[in-house]
Design a protein around this nucleic acid. Structure first.
Length: 426
RNA sequence: GGAGGUGUCGCCUAGUCCGGUCUAUGGCGCCCGCCUGCUAAGCGGGUUUGGGGCUACAACCCCAUCGAGGGUUCAAAUCCCUCCACCUCCGCCA
């Protein structure tokens, strides 16, 4: 949620930010109206309550008629207080709801527009030229089959479409990628975490995934629990309702967890293979820091993402996502997109968002500075999302015979193997 | 899953049976001051969080806050209901 004070004191800035995302200012107007009602209601309530309190105090000492009189007066007053309380609670609720619908204020640097209006910040490496090498690249589905690494047919049989089994070197690849990521994170000073994938509504709501994005979230029937689409949810809620020691910031976590996404609304998109699946494992960086440090930390997170992609020896580009494609919480988002040879384009492998105090405000995460508490900033960034990393590695490093060269950084995690060979009958 | 217990303003704790002088006790820690060759001790004061008012700031004032939410009552830390977390025992289980 955005800073209520900003909304109150400078609504035009908030409206402009809405417009930049391609949204109407309707929720802004609703919030402002509710805020006024709320403040008036609070004033009424407080006045009545004070009156009631002072009368109540007289009763224990009062005797006879005086006492009866006091009781009668205070009784009607109590009813008024109850009404005022209800009015206040309703206004408060309207205000909070309207406020929570307002997305974070996009950074001035974020490009204007929608999904296609991103700006390419940087291109690293060159897509491999298979034509020059004289063979047609195989897609990850075929390679996965030849290597005995990915079993899509049985995934569909057991769990349905967009599910898969990682088998043999596929399973080994996952562990290798996770360990490579976790080791890099540890070396960079991150605390390693295994995070739960099931969370309560508060965590989901607090991270901004229950609004427009709710369609994409699995809910456990009859349990009031949700399956997370990213460990960002669990890691943001990790310190909810806490006041963090200023000295402890930044707090950097690298969290592993399975992730679940309904992928509603993406029917027909990436239907084959493991680019877009309902379940995958991911190592996510999550940082709590000060608002002042947030932008610089965002750059650092991008740096760590690039470092990891470099280790996988991939060709990729870094894009600055446009305001309309930021999601509710972020003010700015960088995606790293790796070249997928058989698609002939760059596809998102990692993504890092600066959410400033938007999530911290909802989850009540603060720090103390100069005796005052202030909301912290939260940032997240993918270190590695397993299926897409596997897709990029297999397709990029494949050889004419269907074998796959292992990037050097990954070899220590794969018993030193330099090449993954197709299995007989694969 | 079953039975029982616990939850108080950083930590510990009094208060809950029997509703009103609870505007929540005391200790520890921490902060400020006094005292003092220095340190310690001692003495005095302060020390939850959120919202609002008044302000250049601070001081100050008001409302809420005793795990959360509801109820009863003129009045709730205290009585009733629901939920949550933790602890003990039993059952089940990787």
């Amino acid at each position: 949620m955005i800073d209520p004070r900003l909304l109150r004191e400078d609504p035009d800035t908030v409206r402009a930010a809405q417009a930049k995302r391609g949204l109407s200012g309707e929720s802004v107007d609703r919030a402002l109206e509710a805020d006024q009602r709320r403040r008036a209601a609070i004033a009424d309530y407080e006045q009545l309550r004070a009156e009631q309190k002072s009368l109540s105090k007289l009763i224990p000492q009062a005797q006879g008629d005086e006492r009866a009189d006091l009781l009668a007066r205070t009784k009607t007053l109590a009813a008024d207080v109850k009404d005022a309380e209800a009015t206040q609670a309703a206004a408060e609720e309207d205000w909070r709801t309207a406020l929570k619908d307002i997305p974070n204020i996009a950074a001035p640097e974020a490009p204007e527009g929608g999904e296609d209006d991103f700006v390419v910040l940087e291109t690293v490496g060159t897509p491999r030229d298979f034509a020059a090498e004289g063979f047609e690249p195989r897609d990850h589905i075929e390679l996965g089959q030849m290597l005995g690494a990915i079993d899509l047919e049985r995934g569909a049989k057991v769990s349905g479409s967009r599910f898969y089994f990682l088998t043999g070197v596929g399973a080994q690849l996952e562990f290798a990628l996770v360990n490579l990521a976790m080791d890099q994170a540890r070396e960079a000073g991150f605390t390693q975490v295994i995070a739960p994938s099931l969370v309560k509504p508060r965590a989901m709501e607090g991270t901004g995934f229950l609004g427009q994005a709710a369609d994409d979230v699995y809910r456990i029937e009859g349990e009031d629990m949700y399956l997370v689409g990213t460990s960002e949810v669990a890691m943001a809620a990790y310190h909810s309702d806490e006041i963090l020691d200023a000295e402890s910031l930044p707090l950097r976590y690298a969290a592993f967890s399975p992730c679940f996404r309904k992928e509603a609304g993406s029917h027909g998109k990436d239907t084959k293979g493991i680019i877009r699946v309902h379940w995958f494992d991911k190592v996510e960086m999550f940082v709590y820091t000060t608002l002042e440090e947030a932008a610089a930390e965002h750059e650092r997170l991008l740096g760590w993402e690039k470092q990891f992609l470099d280790k996988l020896e991939l060709a990729y580009q870094v894009i600055d996502t446009a305001a309309g494609d930021l999601g509710l919480s972020a003010i700015r988002k960088f995606d790293c997109e790796a070249w997928i040879p058989t698609q002939g384009k760059y596809r998102e492998l990692t993504s890092t968002s600066n959410c400033t105090d938007f999530q911290a405000r909802r989850l009540d995460i603060r720090t103390r500075a100069d005796g005052k508490t202030t909301s912290v900033a939260t940032l997240n960034g993918t270190l590695t999302a397993i299926p897409r990393a596997i897709v990029a590695v297999l397709e990029t490093h494949q050889q004419a015979d269907g074998s796959v060269r292992v990037p050097e950084a990954l070899r220590p995690y794969l018993q030193g193997r330099e090449v993954l060979e197709p299995i007989a009958g694969g």
